[in-house]
Amino acid sequence: MDDALLSIDALRLALPSGARLLDGVSLRLERGRILGVVGESGSGKSLTGLSVLGLQPRGRLEGKLAFEGQDLLGFGPGDWRRFRGRRAAIIFQDPMTAFLPVRRIGAQIAEQIRLHSLCSRREAETRVIALLSRMGVPAPREAARRFPHELSGGLRQRAMIAMALSCDPDLVIADEPTTALDVTVQAQILMLLREIGARRAGVMLITHDMGVVAQICTDIAVLYAGVVVESGPAEAVLRTPWHPYTRALLRAIPPMDGARPDRLPTIEGTPPAPEARPPGCVFAPRCPERRAACAFRPALRRHEDRSVACVLYP
């Protein structure tokens, strides 16, 4: 029996066209931890997050997707309605499109609270204001009466997080929550996410920014072309990456300290399209360590607290 908050094993998602968008995603998230799911665009990191809420595009979803041991793949519409919002909530990158533009922020959050718990309109309103103020929104009473477009990007993202947390979910999925924000505002939002993680909920942070992972995540899962190629405690993986892709990705980031290199190390080529993924290791065509054994897809193997899918680590 798996006691993880969220446990995903060999998850695959294929579209009717045959494109395999997810091709072997395995990860675990415990309560009180922040898992960074990193990868480049098209790697399937957002789809993984959406699949946990049953919001993935129509297609064939296979593998194991379990929340506190409960199988999510067998969920019906009613199960999902009870699950989303109360047990698990999602924060999107762009809160402008996630809020309804013609309703006030406070009313939208209150609606969600009243949908999931029995309380009066007034009680819901009080809870909204308390939530906004906990999210560090100045003058929360006035902010609740504003329309989404009247708030700055940073405040809108805080309101979005307030809505996600309104029903005290056990799992919070944050999909690039700071990508649209300036760095000084990003730092404020990251602080908030870290507090959520500290309160016994599990946070799945989907991002392309290794710096963000290094600063607030306890664990990391690296995706490439729909496959988790490496995972483990964030500090260990970032300090000594094992998979050649993780290594190359970390080296390609321009450094903020030390000497300025003449050239940044790069990864030649581009990731394969979902309909043209190699049958063997997905990274092999671009891998500097490629060998004959890479013609077969390596399994994600566990080595103590870390996992890697590469023939170099049998």
Binding site: D182, V183, T184, V185, A187, L190, Q215, L238, R239
Partner: peptide, 22 residues
């Protein structure tokens, strides 16, 4: 300084960011 410190990077703790928005 605030801009430089707000850049997330490995091996450095998250520094208390600037208050408020521009």
């Amino acid at each position: 300084r605030a801009l430089v410190e707000a850049v997330p990077r490995p091996g450095r703790a998250l520094v208390a960011p600037l208050e408020g928005d521009v």
